[in-house]
């Protein structure tokens, strides 16, 4: 180890691997990962979310999974919880859509209305 910079770079690289274990107080993205979800393609959505969050080095964002959310026909779907905000549920997701949600909603705070369950049900 030759310098602090070298150490810090290593830390940054390593942090991505373990960050999940920090207690998440900020944004929680919960992906439905029951059989219904998985068969509808929830897993690529999950992975896309995880990757995107890391890529953007977003702090205080955890991507977690849950069982059946109860609207199997809308799968793959996930919910975004933020302190002081209403829960937002996105439905019929795929990897690309998930990335867009991260970019617009998580990063810029603008809900992607067209993907939400509200838009769908209309």
């Amino acid at each position: 180890m030759k310098s602090l910079e070298e150490l810090r770079k290593l830390r940054k690289d390593s942090l991505d691997q373990v960050d999940m274990r920090r207690s998440g107080k900020g944004t929680r993205i919960v992906v439905g990962m029951a059989t219904c979800g998985i068969s509808a393609g929830a897993r690529p959505v999950m992975m896309a979310l995880v990757e995107e969050v890391k890529k953007r080095t977003l702090q205080d964002v955890t991507v977690t999974q849950t069982g059946c959310i109860g609207a199997c026909r809308l799968e793959p779907m996930f919910e975004v919880y933020r302190a002081g905000e209403e829960k937002v549920t996105y439905v019929h997701m795929d990897g690309e859509k998930a990335k867009r949600v991260v970019a617009e909603h998580i990063v810029n705070g603008k809900v992607v209305q067209e993907y939400t369950i509200g838009a769908y049900e209309k």
Binding site: M1, L7, R11, D13, S14, L15, Q17, V18, D19
Partner: peptide, 10 residues
């Protein structure tokens, strides 16, 4: 690396 990730050796 996991120790370093949590500020180890800083």
């Amino acid at each position: 690396e996991e120790y370093i990730a949590y500020d180890g050796y800083e």
